[in-house]
Amino acid sequence: MSIVPELKTILRHASGFRLGQFQAYPPRPIRAPAAGPDYISPLSISIVTPVLNQAAFVAQTIESVLMQRVSPLEYIVIDGGSTDGTTDTVALYRKYLSHFESQKDSGQSDALNKGFALASGDILGWLNGDDFLLPGALEFVARFFTAHPDVDVVYGDRIVVDRDSREIGRWMLPSHSNRILSWVDYIPQETVFWRRRLWERVGSRLDDSFDFAMDWELLVRFRECGARFRHLPRFIGAFRVHSAQKTIAQKDLGLAEMNRIRGRCLGYVPSEGELRLAVIPYVMRHLGREWRSRLMPTPTARS
């Protein structure tokens, strides 16, 4: 039996490299930032949740948005015709939602486009039906956008959780790199928010020819329009790992769509070796932040 996979695991643990990993350590209780008092934002926020057969998780997703203690907040849930009880669970929260519908659609991008067509917020973002926001996330995002009118897109750090909402990993990202977007998408989708003016500039739609990498494709379009990105050094959202999620269940589709984006950005599809070399500078900056947080912990790093 080859020892290479085991050696890779040992080296990752020793170095602190966690980007792209779905389990970095054994499950433990989640540690998250604390929420502040109620906050009235000068910028309205719209969140869209596309959901399909996620009855086991969608209640936590919805509650994580409704408990953000920020207003004005518009929350739209678009169900693709679930058959596992998801619609019954969402119905329990119906009076708190700005819009809810359940009907068969042509995929996640279609559902998101339906939701965003109804959204009226100054700040937009989406949260999948198996992920959740961390306390105080939307206040942090809204305050940042208000204080930085020149910034178009923000995203934060990610906590990785298992199906029981136990923490199994953390992605602490370095400052934003436009270059890395041509090679790999390390940006945690559930932490991404953008301004309406930018959304309108790129056509107010996700590319529904993508069913897996639609978030990466949107970020590339944002970049092509000259958007100003900013990484926020705070844990914003939690990404859930479970056997039925698309990231695991549709690996071949995901690879095809990611290579389609690489071909568009780079003019060719790079080899695995070329990818590894290209991401080294970014990974080194990630490791620098990871080790700084370990050696010189701050409230943000501990949160």
Rank of each mutant, 00 (worst) to 15 (best):
D185Y: 03
I76A: 01
S41C: 10
D88T: 13
Y155G: 02
G267A: 07
A59K: 05
D215E: 15
E200F: 13
Q60I: 15
K104H: 14
K114Y: 11
F212K: 04
T191I: 10
Q60A: 15
A244Y: 13
L73K: 03
L134N: 03
R262I: 04
C265L: 06
F57T: 01
V51W: 01
D207N: 07
D105Y: 14
D208E: 11
L112E: 00
R221F: 09
F22M: 13
I76V: 11
L133F: 06
F193S: 02
D122F: 01
G85M: 06
R12M: 06
Q108L: 14
S15C: 10
H242I: 08
E290D: 13
Y96V: 10
S102F: 04
K95Y: 13
L73V: 07
G267W: 05
K251S: 14
S271T: 00
I168T: 00
D211T: 15
P174A: 09
I76E: 01
S177P: 07
L198W: 03
Q60S: 15
I76W: 02
E74P: 09
T83D: 09
L92W: 11
L253I: 14
N113C: 07
S64D: 04
L255T: 07
I187L: 09
Q54C: 03
T247Q: 12
I180L: 05
P42M: 06
K114E: 12
